[in-house]
């Protein structure tokens, strides 16, 4: 406490800094950014990240309100708390950005990703792949006598785990959508 009776770094009323003190430890945050779906808006968001040296772990975008031409961009990013605060403030500055939500700090949220995985193989490996797919609730969306394409949805961690298991069984290609996320409850 200083002579002024203000705890340094308290910030208790600020909407821009919800936590008392910035640490140097990197955190993963999922941001939902609502934007006007106009030409160049994605370039603005991506340019912000590359221009200021922020990380993008995953990014998805699609128009979610066709009448209002509003798109939702879901960005998973990693940074120290100070960097995360900056990212949010910088996103908020982009003119066609309407809302920025940090799903990681604004309460519980659900995150899902969809992936397609091609597994090639014969005999036992093929059977094992099918068995594991069943456990992971992955669907077969294409098959030949020597290959499957599995469709799986889940958290990025679940998809990672499934891909790790498929690798020795003949995994040849993976396509992932990146994370889509929503806050839980009302």
């Amino acid at each position: 406490m200083s002579a002024l009776q203000i705890k340094k770094g308290s910030n208790k009323h600020s909407a821009y800094n919800l936590r008392p003190n910035f640490s140097d430890v990197s955190e993963k945050h999922t941001l939902a950014v609502l934007v006007d779906n106009e030409a160049g808006v994605l370039a603005r968001v991506i340019g912000l990240f590359s221009g200021r040296g922020y990380n993008i772990d995953s990014l998805t975008v699609a128009e979610v309100d066709h009448a209002g031409h509003r798109s939702r961009i879901t960005i998973v990013t990693t940074g120290t708390p100070q960097v995360i605060e900056q990212i949010k403030a910088q996103l908020g500055r982009i003119v066609p950005v309407h809302e920025v939500h940090d799903l990681t700090v604004e309460g519980a949220s659900v995150e899902r990703e969809l992936a397609l995985l091609k597994v090639e193989g014969e005999g036992d490996k093929r059977v094992e792949a099918l068995r594991l797919a069943d456990i992971f609730r992955a669907n077969v969306v294409d098959s030949t006598l020597t290959s499957f394409v599995f469709e799986i949805t889940g958290t990025p961690g679940k998809i990672d785990a499934f891909a790790d298991l498929m690798r020795p069984l003949g995994l040849t290609e993976v396509a992932r959508t990146g994370v889509a996320a929503l806050s839980r409850g009302l």
Binding site: I6, K8, G9, N11, S14, Y16, N17, Q82, A89
Partner: peptide
Amino acid sequence: PSSINKVIKADIP
């Protein structure tokens, strides 16, 4: 808002 806490932490933002 992006000026605040960008370089120096503000005690009263």
